[in-house]
Write a protein that binds this DNA or RNA. Structure first.
Lengths: 200, 200
DNA sequence: TGTACATCAGTGAACGCGCGTTCACTGATGTAC
DNA sequence: TGTACATCAGTGAACGCGCGTTCACTGATGTAC
């Protein structure tokens, strides 16, 4: 893919640069992303990306958006194999969450580690909203507590996000996903669920 | 502190460089830390730090350690004003956790965002262990569940860490600590505590 | 179907920047006697 | 108390590196007629 002869016009350089960026971040963490390295990995000159991404921040934003898409996909894949039981679905989404974070720490840190990005990007907003929607959906059947439906979402989300983040911090690079999943299933408390999951 | 006349020998340049590093990270995030900027902020030439920190990684490790000390201090301060009730103590430590994270997002991200560091540093291990000890102490009174005492620690820690991390991610830079604390107090579930807090 | 031409999407050289690090040096300090 | 000297802890110049970005250019593509 890198050195083979190409026509002057690349087929879809934008997508190729995003894929290259994801690969760089996966391999070397958030700081490993650079325009020149992404261009090299995509097999074009280092000036070519400028046409598709005016600045490094734009490329980073697009890579983060791709991260969110893969993140959402990881949760959806687990959800597809889950029963309709609300607790099963919360556990399944958590498995997808943990698998993504532990398999791609670089992307996870890029997404949640405070790297600057273009918050106004449509592509990013769409991708991030899709991920949030999964968490909102699985939390909806929980009976609202003191903090309402939003409190339930934050509870479920915080628990699994914290577990992912701390597991990564404790065993940098070599965390066992199955152990983290087992721990998640053990610490998720019993919750009360609506009898009518569609809500009041 | 920056431009005033100094003798050839700095009093405690090592400490001054760590303080400068903390300040840089607080202001500009994990990537804002550099040897040259820390030296400038401490009022010395950019070659001076080499004597105290052989490489940038060493300075970064020391700044992370200082972050852990301030983090621990933030929790201890809140704990000092808490009652002996186990739940009150868990809430108090959580307040310290959230206050630190929301007041110093840059440091928080440097500590937990996957930045590379020297894991073998005594200074860092000591500082990080002190923080973990606080969480272990406040979790000790919880009756062990399926995952034992370790499960309790991870539950409490994950919940507050996830909440801090996600609150930062959702409102980059301008998160309201009091709102986050209120949310934490609302979503922390009822837990069962030992009657003898010292354990079996 | 063929030709002229505008536009698109690349190339490669060049620029300046901040960086970590090295090196010869030197002024300040502290110790031996 | 005074002096010689080793060592400590700085300075400032220099090096090379990777980077984002700009620019004049050019080959490929597609459209008008």
């Amino acid at each position: 893919m890198t050195a083979e002869k190409r026509p002057h016009h690349h087929g879809d350089l934008r997508a190729a640069l995003i894929a290259a960026g994801v690969s760089l971040v996966r391999k070397g963490g958030p700081d490993a992303l650079s325009i020149r390295k992404a261009a090299a990995l995509a097999g074009v000159s280092h000036a070519a990306p400028a046409y598709h991404f005016p600045s490094l921040a734009d490329l980073r934003t697009a890579v983060i958006a791709q991260g969110y898409r893969e993140f959402t996909q990881s949760m959806e894949t687990e959800l597809a194999g889950a029963s309709v039981s609300p607790r099963d679905r919360i556990l399944a989404a958590g498995r997808g969450y943990l698998r993504f974070a532990l398999a791609s720490p670089g992307l996870f840190h890029l997404m949640f580690g405070g790297s600057s990005r273009d918050e106004t990007s449509d592509e990013l907003c769409t991708a991030a909203d899709a991920a949030y929607d999964v968490l909102r959906r699985i939390s909806a059947p929980i009976v609202p507590g003191a903090a309402g439906a939003e409190g339930n979402e934050m509870f479920v989300w915080s628990l699994v996000h914290g577990l992912a983040s701390l597991t990564l911090a404790k065993s940098e690079g070599a965390a066992d996903p199955e152990a983290a999943i087992a721990l998640y299933e053990a610490i998720l408390p019993d919750l009360r669920y609506r009898t009518d999951p569609a809500g009041a």
